[in-house]
């Protein structure tokens, strides 16, 4: 009889402890009386997602990009995590961040819907191929308004793995076009460099468009641009041609050409419009480790070809 009791006790202990542990490990830790929105950074998809990311799904599937919705005047608690590498989080217009989000740690931030409208959150730590697409919308609803609005001013989803074109194709412009998309340039400079992407508190308000590069390079004649394109395509040493310029304004062009090359290589921090305001979320990164000289020439060639000569 005593033996049976011992067995029952042991069996109960095992059951209760195993079930208890599993139950106790499910809920998220307590929250400070606010609505909690959990966002997890996922490198491979270039998103902050509001889905639960754990061992059972991380390696198997993609995650949707989160849109955070709150009411005007409401304050929510953001629980920010990373499932893989260090990400950043920044909402310049609402005065949140920038903070680094290290994997395995949780960053808790209060987010207040100061005014109604659409705001963009950004990842501010380069986190891989999809980093430049890692943005999303924070929608603050005005009083009495329903959540009906759709798109916000954020980059499209990251559709590619940042893979480089296998080898330099014959047409240097095509190579540049591939890079422009796969390196994420288009996420800030717009499709084919058409520009128009907002950059909060940046001196020019929007990220500079690239399709007017011909102008910046002092190429005012379509023929001159064609000449340059052909030279780049051939792989000619443009600097060496300074003594025998192929067109009149060649030396002015060359100076600008070098300046643009340097800008792509070394990057540039976006200047503030309001010096007391937050830092603009988007800045030109340094590409010298990611792109070869030939890559950069190809990008310039591609953007040269985008100039709207007809207009």
């Amino acid at each position: 009889m005593r033996a049976l009791l011992h067995e029952l006790f042991a069996a109960t202990l095992v059951t209760v402890s195993l079930v208890g542990i599993s139950a106790a490990m499910q809920p998220e830790p307590a929250t400070r009386g606010m609505r909690v929105v959990s966002l997890t950074g996922v490198k491979k998809d270039g998103v902050f997602t509001d889905e639960k990311v754990d061992g059972t799904n991380y390696w198997r599937r993609s995650f949707r990009r989160a849109t955070v919705v709150l009411d005007e005047g409401e304050t929510i608690l953001l629980r920010l995590q990373s499932a893989d590498v260090t990400h950043g989080f920044y909402v310049p217009e609402l005065g949140v961040g920038p903070v680094l989000i290290e994997p395995g740690k949780v960053v808790e931030l209060e987010l207040q819907g100061k005014r109604a409208g659409l705001f963009t959150y950004y990842c501010t730590a380069v986190c891989g191929h999809c980093h430049y697409y890692m943005q999303g919308t924070i929608r603050v609803l005005g009083r009495g308004r329903k959540d009906t609005e759709t798109a916000a001013a954020v980059a499209p989803g990251c559709r590619h793995g940042g893979e480089r074109p296998a080898s330099t194709p014959r047409a240097v412009v095509d190579h540049g076009q591939l890079l422009f998309a796969s390196m994420g340039c288009e996420s800030c400079h717009g499709p084919r460099g058409s520009g128009g992407v907002r950059n909060y508190n940046y001196v020019k308000d929007v990220v500079p468009q690239n399709n007017l590069l011909a102008e910046r390079l002092q190429l005012f004649e379509p023929d001159d641009a064609e000449t340059v394109l052909a030279l780049i395509d051939k792989g000619a040493d443009l600097a060496a041609l300074e003594t025998t310029p192929p067109f009149k304004t060649y030396s002015r062009f060359l100076a600008q050409y070098k300046a643009v090359q340097d800008l792509i290589k070394n990057g540039n921090r976006a200047g503030k419009k309001d010096p007391a305001g937050p830092a603009p979320p988007l800045s030109m990164p340094a590409w010298r480790e990611q792109l070869t000289d030939r890559d950069i020439e190809s990008l310039i060639a591609f953007l040269l070809a985008q100039f709207p000569w007809d207009e």
Binding site: V14, S17, L18, I21, S22, M25, Q26, V53, D54, G55, T56, Y58, W59, Q81, S82, A83, D84, P103, G104, K105
Partner: peptide
């Protein structure tokens, strides 16, 4: 077994980041 239950739960539902699981 109790430790193990903690490990299994963490492996399934915890962070996929190994060095913090």
């Amino acid at each position: 077994l109790v430790c193990f239950a903690v490990f299994i739960n963490a492996g399934l539902f915890g962070s996929p980041v190994g060095s913090h699981n």
